[in-house]
């Protein structure tokens, strides 16, 4: 028995060491750092208690980044998941050009986000950009999507939806293919309409996948900010600043590492809360077999 315990620990050791040194210890250090001031050259860091957190509450940019991020999540998560499911349903059946369609839907996922964002800048460019040229055919006025506070965040969100939907589609496609056809045939025999079959048979059976995707989508809504770097640098006037981008800015451009640690703690807390909520609340609606 003892020996088995020892073996178990030895087997766990490599993973434990990696996790501890790259995840757990840095996370704890981040929390510790958030209670100290930033060291600058001659002035060493000293304990400031909740000072950084008080600054955070008084920091309008932080609140703006939070608001932006929540709006960004509220747009990108349902939209990318909805489109993913619709695309999966479309390319599941026997239709002409299925292979081509699947590939086309999945392509955005394969492309690096930085490269993609650089291309999207040209789509959005006022005047000679693709979207404005299409708009001009229908007599729409010139739009400066990335240069207006009212549209910049939506323009950035659209890129994420376009990028993520194809990735999530793959999971839905796999889930849809595991549904036994007999269940759907049985429902049909009972006279259920297509919509009814989808709502009562398909949807409940792919709930585990939906949960998995939604967890990923939430994490990505806070984690994927590459396009902000390329397209807007958070502008104009922080209109498209997301929490993670702001952390980078404070940490690696302003070099206020203690305040960046404070922001990171807040972001971690939000993500943990959401993940716990998802697993415990949604679990009741999910049927694992």
């Amino acid at each position: 028995m003892r020996r088995e315990t020892l073996h178990a620990w030895l087997l766990l050791l490599p993973a434990a060491v990696l996790l501890a040194s790259f995840t757990h210890i840095p996370a704890i250090e981040t929390v510790v750092n958030s209670f100290f001031s930033t060291a600058r050259g001659m002035r060493p860091s000293h304990f400031v208690g909740l000072g950084n957190y008080r600054n955070l509450i008084a920091d309008p940019t932080f609140w703006q980044a939070m608001r932006n991020n929540l709006l960004y999540a509220a747009i990108t998560i349902p939209l990318s998941m909805g489109i993913a499911l619709a695309m999966a349903l479309l390319v599941r059946g026997r239709i002409g050009g299925r292979g081509f369609l699947r590939m086309a839907f999945f392509t955005p996922t394969v492309l690096p986000l930085i490269a993609v964002a650089n291309i999207w800048i040209f789509f959005y460019t006022p005047g000679f950009g693709l979207l404005n040229q299409i708009g001009a055919l229908f007599g729409l006025p010139n739009m400066n999507f990335l240069g207006q506070g009212a549209t910049a965040l939506y323009a950035v969100a659209a890129v994420s939806v376009w990028k993520e939907a194809g990735f999530f589609m793959i999971f839905y496609l796999a889930a849809l293919q595991t549904i036994p056809p007999s269940l759907i045939e049985a429902a049909r025999l009972e006279g259920a309409s297509s919509w009814h079959v989808f709502r009562r048979v398909t949807l409940p059976l792919i709930m585990p996948t939906t949960l998995f995707i939604s967890v990923n989508a939430v994490i990505n809504a806070f984690r994927l900010v590459d396009q902000v770097f390329v397209m807007t640098q958070g502008g104009p006037d922080n209109a498209s600043t997301l929490l993670f981008y702001y952390i980078y800015q404070v940490g690696f451009q302003f070099w206020d590492t203690a305040y960046a640690a404070t922001l990171t703690v807040v972001m971690l807390a939000i993500l943990v809360a959401i993940a716990i909520g998802q697993f415990f609340l949604l679990d009741r609606k999910v049927h694992y077999r």
Partner: peptide, 13 residues
Amino acid sequence: EPGTLDWGTTPKA
């Protein structure tokens, strides 16, 4: 053009 204008696309413009 009103709004902020991107650097990278300026030569193209």
